[in-house]
Each structure stands twice: as structure tokens, then as C-alpha cells.
Design a protein around this nucleic acid. Sequence first.
DNA 1: ACCTGAACACCGTTCAAGT
DNA 2: ACCTGAACACCGTTCAAGT
Lengths: 224, 224
Amino acid sequence: MVNTAQRRHRRSDALSKERIVAAAIEILDTQGENALTFRALTARLETGAGAIYWHVANRDDLLAAATDYVIAHAVTAGAGETDPQQAIRAIALGVFDAFNTHPWVGTQLAREPWQPAILHVFEGIGRQLQALGVPNLAQFNCATTLMGYMVGLAAQYAAGARLHLRATDRPEFLAGLAARWTQRHDAASYPFVHQQANQIATHDDREQYLAGIDLILAGIHTLR
Amino acid sequence: MVNTAQRRHRRSDALSKERIVAAAIEILDTQGENALTFRALTARLETGAGAIYWHVANRDDLLAAATDYVIAHAVTAGAGETDPQQAIRAIALGVFDAFNTHPWVGTQLAREPWQPAILHVFEGIGRQLQALGVPNLAQFNCATTLMGYMVGLAAQYAAGARLHLRATDRPEFLAGLAARWTQRHDAASYPFVHQQANQIATHDDREQYLAGIDLILAGIHTLR
DNA sequence: ACCTGAACACCGTTCAAGT
DNA sequence: ACCTGAACACCGTTCAAGT
């Protein structure tokens, strides 16, 4: 009753920052970062450019809001774990999977690391470090190392996704990359690259990412 | 003698990919990534847009070439070290300092991680891992973890530099960030953030970066 | 308070034309 | 072979005008 007057003046699909962010995420996920233009948004939301600017400061602000939304919804993962190491792994995998589903998030987070959602990840990791018995003074370095690793790797996976690497042609791409590298640089000058060529061509991103997390966790373990 | 005819047809300041890349790096370093436009380049090189496109495929190609140049010249660092751990630290610091001098490199490398110069870093790290006695099967994971960490952190420092954080106003910025975070989220729900607020405000990027490298090295040490 | 959409300044890239 | 520079298609953002 109270808001009848209000309702009368609103279209059922009234614009809002949430609706704009949702539309932006859909465009980003399906067509990539370059496809997110104000023209595309106005077309999809059936409005004018100025209407979007009423709810959003500019393109960067919109990108930040979209990133924050995705990360905030991904970080709830790992809350149920009891073992601190497992909890950190769960958080890390939650971040990884969010980046895989939304490749543009990695690039964005690498560009603007001080977004609110980051704080949730930082807090979540920090608690587990305390539970692990890491000394107070070392906790900051451990948390930032883990966060930096997660965000950094995420940006790189995003770069892979941007090259339209579907699951099917990814092996070919990596094989081609390894082949080009070993052909251009001889084994005498680049022994390590030649030795690891097969790994480069066949490795699994998720496994390798988790191996890095475990390596850092092993380093953290030595601090106790 | 042989090339007199050639020389006669060339302006003394003839265009070349090298000259274009050099001009691009200068613009990127002094005015930032957004200032690198073809208009700015043509003005500085006193030529037309088409002339640049004769030597360079497009803007991305130019950015990649500039990144490769900077990294290739940074990686020679650490070649003189005899202790493998010290050598890895030296390589890591070489990368860090290159990113600090050229903040745009971090963003670029996070976007396109498969650039030729990366191969040099990968090879350099790999050799030290072998010298460290890391088992063959684990060397790939160790090398990619270190590389991912370096590149990932670099992109984040670049984000800081992009906000025009000079050495003088950096402390204020970080203090303000920490203050905002602790004000918006209460100590009960975010104990770790509150506990670390002082570290966030006062930490040194280079030290913290190196602490991460050492943490990973400590983890690698457990593999032997 | 919220929305419209034309207009502005700017961009990467192309290409017919020159030397 | 290499360079010129106008032209094209497109972009983020602004703003006077509407409701």
C-alpha cells in the first residue's frame, strides 16, 4: 500500500546498478572483455548511455563492480573445511574456478588489486594461517604471498582463455608452443626448456596451480 | 662501398622496428600505457600512421615487442651468482626492478605470458633448480610457481604505479586504504584485517616480494 | 530522480597515392 | 620497398532536454 505511488512511476524492469552489472557480466562471459561497450549495454538494456552513467561512474567502475560481484560469490567456498591447509586449498580452488568461468576477472583483478572482494579472501586466508600456528609477524607475508600467487596465476589463465583456447584445441596450442620454443632455441643453450618441453605441452593448469599452492604451504610449514 | 646506393636512399633517421619500439618505451615510461597512441607515435617519429604499420603489425604487436625488449635486458641479472638460491633471488629482483622502472610491463606480461623473453627467465630459473637438487619431476612445478608469482606480483605493483603513487604519497595511500578497510568492516567479523592493518599501511613492496620468493624457496627445499 | 539520445573528442586501422 | 596522411568505423563520456 505504502509504495503504490512509487511503483506506479517505475517500469517493471527499472534500471539499477545490479541490473547493469548483471548485464555486463553476461556480455563479459559470453563475448569477452572487448565486447563490453556502452553501445552493447544500451542495446541489451534498451536504454540510453546517460541512463547507465546515472548508476555507474564510468567503464572502470562497472568493471570493478562486476569483478567484485563474481569474487564475493566465489569466496564462500572453503568455509566448511576444518583442516586449515585444506581450507586454504579450497579457497584457492574457489578463486581458480571463478577465474576459469569468468576469464576477464583475472585481468581486472591484476589491474585493480584493491577491490573490496579481495578483502574477503585476505581475511579467509589469514584466519587459516593463524589456525596453522604461523607466527604473528610472518602471517602478513604468508597471506600476501598466497594472494599474489592466486591473482597472478589467474591473470595468466585469463590470457589463455582470451586466445579462444577451448578444451579441445588447448593441447594443440601448447604442443605448438613447446615445438616452436625448442626449434628456435637449441638444446645446448636451453637445456631446461628442452627437458621440460613435454611438460609444457601436456600439463594441466589446475593441477599445476594447486602444486604451487602446496609449495607455498610447504614453505609456510617450515616457519612454525 | 657495396651499400652506397642503399645508403643514399635512406634518411639518416630511417624508421625501423627498433626505433619505433624505443619511442614506444619512452612514451610508456614517461606518460603511461594510455598515452601510447599512434597519434603520439607519429608525432614523436615525425611520420604517418601507415609508416608505423609497415614495421609493426598493430598496437598489441608493438606492446609485445616493447615488453620483450625490457625483459630481455633485465634477465641478464643474476648470471654471476654461484649459490643457486642467491641466483634465483637475483633473477627475481631483476624482474622486480624492471617492473618498477617500466610499470606497464607487468600488465602486458600478465596479458600475454607467452612472450619470448619469458623463456629466458624460465630457463634461468630451471638451471638453478637443477643445481639445487630438485627432483626432475618436480622441477616444472617449481619453475612455473616461481614464474607465476613473479609475473603476478609484477602486475599488481604495476596497478599501484598506475595510480600515480610516487614514493612520497604512497604511505598516505596505503594508510588511507587500511583505514577505510578497518572502518568499513568491524574487528569482530574481520579480525585478521584489523590485526594486519598496520602491516598493510607500512609494508615495503620489495621486501614483501622477496619474502614470498623465500617462502617458495623454503617449500622447494623440502622436496629434496 | 531518472532517463533519452545526439554530439564531442578521440582512438586503431586501412588504403590509395606518392617516392 | 617504404612512407604519407586523409578517411573510416568505433569508442567512452557529456549534457541539454525530457518525464
